[in-house]
Amino acid sequence: MSETKPSLLSVVTGSWVLPVFIACVVAVVGLGLNPYLLFLLTRIVIFVMLIIGLNVLMGYSGQLSFAHAALFGIGAYATGLLQVHLDVPFAIALCAATVGVMGVGTLMVLPALRLSGIHLAIATLAIAQAVHWVLVNWTSVTFGAGGFRAPAIRLFGLDKTETAFLVALVSTTICYLLVRQLLRTSFGRRFIAVRDNAVAAAANGVNVTAVKTMAFALSAAIAAFAGGLYSALLGFVAPESFNLEQMILMKIMTVVGGLGTMVGAVIGPALVIVLQEQLRESQGWLEIIFGSMLIGFVLFLPSGLAPLLKRLSGQSARTETVALAPRTGQPADRKPAVMNAEGN
């Protein structure tokens, strides 16, 4: 791999200028679109935030979780329900939901965090299904399978969708910048170390369980915030938006964009949601195409599209990227003594 030369391109993309600029462009373009396209664009923006969070957990820390659609859902439900049942204003409901979900989500996963790889994945799957069950069945609070109407927010005389769009865009841009900055510090290194070689990480002083917990908590908070925004966008919250199929779509977004890259978190959702729109009519074809994409990317392009694009634009695929197919860290987690013959 080539060494990074500090080119103008990398300096510009490295700082906060480019993301903010792109956000402004998107804002201007978005406000000029018809309501339906704007709705779609806002969906993309919200999912970008969600995938940034999921990427922190899956891409950078290498932990597989099926729970994020559920966390997204609880965020949406909590924000909506706080407004509906308790008349809490939107902004406060959103913050409360985020903190609450982060706490509850982390507590739920805590016992499972000692596990790794497949076992953790299955445990999160169980949690996700349980949450879905609660959302459907706790009808007194959650209004059951039919869902409920969440109040819309309007700012400065803009309509519901436009407001949601701008709020989401600002939040997502800030989230992007903050997370990117975080990943450049020792926290980022810890995440990657835990992903690539947890035993070596521990031998260097990294508290692996604490790091996994932090990755999970951070991604849960982001998912919850995105969920709250989603409730405002849709104006309506129902369990079917947060089920396993949605979770798998999120996984596809993450993998297609590029596990372990910030740019991938933007490309993935955009591509998948646009494709989803095109294939809206035929559920069967949608499933076949997305399923094949997932298989294809895992087999042939495990680092996703982002590094490919970076390489095309002349930059070296920075150390953010995953060099190999997504690893559990299985050989790394396995203690060296097990790899050798016993005794030595």
Partner: peptide
Amino acid sequence: LMKAEHAVALLIATIGLSFVIKGMIRL
């Protein structure tokens, strides 16, 4: 992908396969 170190990738790929089969059945 059927090697120990690719367990997670295998999982994701089989999920993709699940989608494909489900879609085929639907069609």
